[in-house]
């Protein structure tokens, strides 16, 4: 299995070079957002107001970490279920987001938007929050601190492991995997 290295922010070329099933290692800055932050971002976009982060070329990680202990960069930090963000994802892709990292199924509208706006959906291993936290080298809250674990964090990651689930060509690893192994 070949592993592709990705440096953020991502370009259209980066995205178009990825195919469902690829393993990737991501380095650079990424931002966190889950349910509550998505709701706030979507409201700002719909009102035409500026966002607290520039989404162009960005990677959004669906995570709500455990609190960092003194001396730690971040606590346990694995992906949450992505389907809850489906309602907002096409809007964020339209604003320039290039990739999102989570786990679990996406709806048809998200898959269509990934094709239209040239984006990818990646999965990290759900329930591997301790391991994934070791690939995060810095962390700071940049918006909505009142949301606690649901705030938007700016994370610097080094070789953060993920797998391409939905690429910009309409392929879906979840469907391909089942086809290959169902009996």
């Amino acid at each position: 299995m070949t592993v592709k290295h990705l440096q953020t922010p991502l370009s259209d070329e980066d995205v178009l070079g990825l195919k469902a099933g690829d393993s990737v290692l991501i380095s650079g800055v990424i931002y966190t957002a889950r349910d509550a932050a998505h709701k706030k971002l979507a409201e700002l976009i719909e009102r035409g107001e500026p966002l607290p982060i520039d989404l162009k070329g960005q990677v959004i990680y669906y995570v709500g970490p455990t609190p960092a202990k003194p001396g730690q960069v971040i606590g346990s930090a694995g992906p949450t279920t992505s389907g809850r963000m489906d309602k907002y994802t096409p809007l964020l892709l339209k604003e320039g987001m290039k990739a999102c990292i989570g786990k679990g199924l996406r709806n048809a509208a998200v898959k269509e938007a990934l094709k239209k706006y040239k984006g990818v959906y990646l999965a990290a291993v759900g329930g591997a929050g301790a391991l994934l936290s070791k690939r995060i080298i810095s962390s700071e809250v940049v918006a909505y601190p009142e949301l606690g674990t649901e705030a938007i964090y700016r994370l610097e990651v080094k070789d953060f492991p993920a797998t391409v689930i939905n690429d910009a060509y309409g392929n879906d690893l979840y469907e391909e995997g089942i086809k290959a192994y169902a009996r």
Partner: peptide, 29 residues
Amino acid sequence: SPAGKEVLKQILENVDIARSEQIPICQDT
């Protein structure tokens, strides 16, 4: 499946890291 094996290895490594470094196994506690 090779991808499935890789996932299981990460899951087992995660359990070891959680135990030895006292980091919650999953962020959803």
